[in-house]
Design a protein around this nucleic acid. Sequence first.
DNA 1: GTTTTTGAACTGACCAGTCAGTCTAAAAAC
DNA 2: GTTTTTAGACTGACTGGTCAGTTCAAAAAC
Lengths: 226, 226
Amino acid sequence: MPSSSVPARAAVPVRIGTMESSSTTGGGTRREATRQKLYEAAVTLIAEQGFSATTVDEIAERAGVAKGTVYYNFASKSVLFEELLRHGVGLLTASLREAAEQTAREDGSRVDALDAMVRAGLVFIDRYPAFTQLYVAELWRTNRAWQSTLMVVRQQAVAVVEGVLREGVDNGEFSDEIDIQLTAAALVGMVLVAALDWKSFQPERSLDDVHAALSRLLQGRVSGKG
Amino acid sequence: MPSSSVPARAAVPVRIGTMESSSTTGGGTRREATRQKLYEAAVTLIAEQGFSATTVDEIAERAGVAKGTVYYNFASKSVLFEELLRHGVGLLTASLREAAEQTAREDGSRVDALDAMVRAGLVFIDRYPAFTQLYVAELWRTNRAWQSTLMVVRQQAVAVVEGVLREGVDNGEFSDEIDIQLTAAALVGMVLVAALDWKSFQPERSLDDVHAALSRLLQGRVSGKG
DNA sequence: GTTTTTGAACTGACCAGTCAGTCTAAAAAC
DNA sequence: GTTTTTAGACTGACTGGTCAGTTCAAAAAC
């Protein structure tokens, strides 16, 4: 309801300044660029406010596109969100796997692999803090449309950690009494919460610093004199 | 909007089992019972759906009271939520502090104190899983009305862990190179995520079982043969 | 007689999703 | 080379519905 009468006609469609033809990979990449802008806008807004409290109008505005464009590119608000989740966790999983494999290639121990994965996790969170926030906030909710997506995607990431633990047990490096699933969850939690604390409350600290603190904890070098 | 005719009369106000009046002055306990029902209804709904996606009508319905009653007892939806947060974290903090103090009274080591706190955390999460879920989901959000409440309340809980770590460093039980703040966050994260994983994905396991797994991790008994 | 609860209607803001129409660049027709 | 057509991308006013919060008289509880 506009406060008073309004032209209601676009009249002169102002040219949108620097569009610059986007280029990138020649063909239909304009669309892809728009989707990327929408992801970026959505991830920060939803991390700050939550899914339901974030409006499609806000997302469109921050991305610098019209609301209709959101619906031209995504079937709905929740589909946009789901694709965002899949995309983000895909990056994380790849990064963890890469860390584990590289350690294996260098004949490192499985503890080294865990340590490398801790670092990879920190690097990820350092790079995508908003995504991490949002992910944590949604992970344990029930009754949400994207629950199953989240489940699948979570399992992919945790499975990488579980795999390393299992290898360690198999080759005798870890006690065969450890509970793989629970230990993996605990390790993920350790990194997740420590990193979010870092980003939220002491962002000035360096990644190496944080990594060192977690390494110590991971390797049980807490007890006893330094 | 009931689909058809409905009793609509509360008739017998069922007393909630073991509520035991407790707080406030002896007088207005009827009101207190209503508030308690509203807390319980709100906590599960918000844990499942998030704050914004949960309507006041739903909360009232699940609590079995009229919508007007919600506003008779709380100034607004967010005030209800804020008081819920304060209440819940108060319980957790008390429980952690109790665990730490009891260990101290028994001349236990600081590792024992940490272990006791891990257990206290698990007991809490076992008892109030919905609250925990909701708390984690809101903790790292920014731009929310109750942000400052959350901050204060988080600090109270983490401070208990930090205190034990500090004592341990002071008496030489822990390395003086540990980063107290970060380590405390990591420990909290370890318990939190492992416990949520437990409740979400393997609820049939016993608390002792989960506690044992975390103890092992905490005491660095992961590496090496069992 | 005071406090608390009820129930149901109401308001006004807000918001997801729609749709008719615009823009543009490139292909097709001339 | 110029005009016309096509189709993909985008626009933004508009619709239909939802929901927080209000109101209040009457009933119930204490």
